[in-house]
């Protein structure tokens, strides 16, 4: 099997908490990301789904080297990035770009659109000739759907709408012609009508430019427009992973089922039976024993308090971390 574009194995990110007093012996630790594995091929889109606090954004930051790993391996185009020297990272960052959630906050208010999009070229000292640089900036703006590009070059972010700002962020990511785009909640701050445009744009870039996309979101409703596969995360772990169709039509993990059930249906006739989980993701310091999901799980049994389930294949490329999967499936059939 050829090496995938991105190969993530056993990635772990722990944050030690500063002890309140100096007499505390036990070092307390936040398990932000805890043993995550997945592959991502060129031109493929993987949606990483979960509630805030599940570790999906931390995982993104480790992939970009913005947070050092505690353990594990990240291979990008066959090159190991975990613990790699800055030169290796510097080269890798030309090919891995990120888009952030808040288009109001992620653009410097004092820079023009042209300057923002030029920034990656400037940082990597690429396309240093004025004419060449200008051409690439215009092409990136054009690719991001900001047309005509000249019209936007000299504008400031506060003169643009939310959707246009997010397009500027996308243009700045595209200017280096990346192979992997990490998009952290790129549409959650936007109006629903604008979301569709941005999602379509990302989906289009994936197909036309063969850019792999890691799409991070809390909303299972937005993934179908772009993702090929879905990984559902809970408390630092992947609890279900599989092709979009499999996960959305036959979700196996109770957490996935709950997440899917609360996606608002755009029609009162299709109103689903909601599985509303009470409370919020527990704090990742004091992890529950056994399955991490059992305190909120609607179908937990006594054994779930003891056994920490591992991902097990339930179909082609579809894996679930729940000890009751087979049992529950045979019951419903």
């Amino acid at each position: 099997m050829p090496e995938p574009l991105l190969r993530v194995r056993g990635v772990r990110k722990l944050f030690p908490i500063k002890a309140a007093g100096w007499r505390t012996h036990a070092q307390r630790v936040v398990h932000a990301v805890d043993d995550v594995n997945f592959d991502l091929g060129a031109g493929e889109a993987l949606a990483l789904v979960g509630e805030s606090g599940c570790g999906k954004s931390t995982l993104a930051l480790t992939l970009l080297g913005l947070e050092p790993l505690t353990a594990g391996s990240i291979r990008f185009e066959g090159q190991e990035l975990a613990g790699a020297p800055p030169e290796v990272w510097r080269l890798a960052r030309r090919h891995i770009q990120m888009i952030f959630q808040d288009p109001y906050e992620s653009l410097n208010p004092l820079m023009t659109v042209g300057e923002i999009v030029a920034e990656p070229l400037q940082v990597h000292k690429l396309a240093t000739a004025t004419e060449e640089r200008r051409r690439r900036i215009m092409a990136a703006l054009d690719d991001a759907g900001l047309k005509p590009a000249q019209h936007f070059m000299r504008r400031f972010p506060h003169e643009l709408s939310g959707g246009q700002r997010q397009r500027v962020a996308i243009a700045a990511a595209l200017v280096l012609e990346p192979r992997l785009l990490v998009a952290d909640e790129p549409v959650s701050m936007l109006d629903v009508s604008i979301r569709a445009e941005i999602l379509n744009l990302l989906a289009d870039l994936k197909v036309r430019r063969q850019i792999a996309v890691l799409f991070i979101t809390h909303d299972l409703g937005t993934v179908s427009a772009i993702a090929d596969r879905i990984a559902v995360m809970y408390l630092g772990r992947i609890v279900e992973i599989g092709a979009v169709n499999d996960v959305l039509t036959t979700p196996q993990h109770p957490y996935t089922q709950a997440l899917l059930s609360v996606v608002p249906a755009p029609n009162p006739r299709l109103r689903r039976q909601h599985i509303i989980l009470q409370g919020e993701t527990p704090d990742p310091v004091n992890l529950p024993a056994g399955c991490r999901f059992h305190p909120r799980c609607p179908v937990a049994i006594a054994r779930c308090h003891q056994v920490d389930p591992v991902l097990q294949a339930v179909g082609a490329g579809h894996a679930v971390a729940c000890i009751r999967t087979t049992e529950l499936r045979t019951n419903t059939l």
Binding site: L64, L66, Q97, M98, S106, V123
Partner: peptide, 22 residues
């Protein structure tokens, strides 16, 4: 703390650049 500084880091910018530019 602002996100555009994080974005610049993600692009690969160093301390001097970020200080000077952002």
């Amino acid at each position: 703390q602002r996100k555009f500084v994080l974005r610049a880091r993600a692009v690969g910018a160093g301390n001097r650049y970020i200080m000077h530019r952002h």
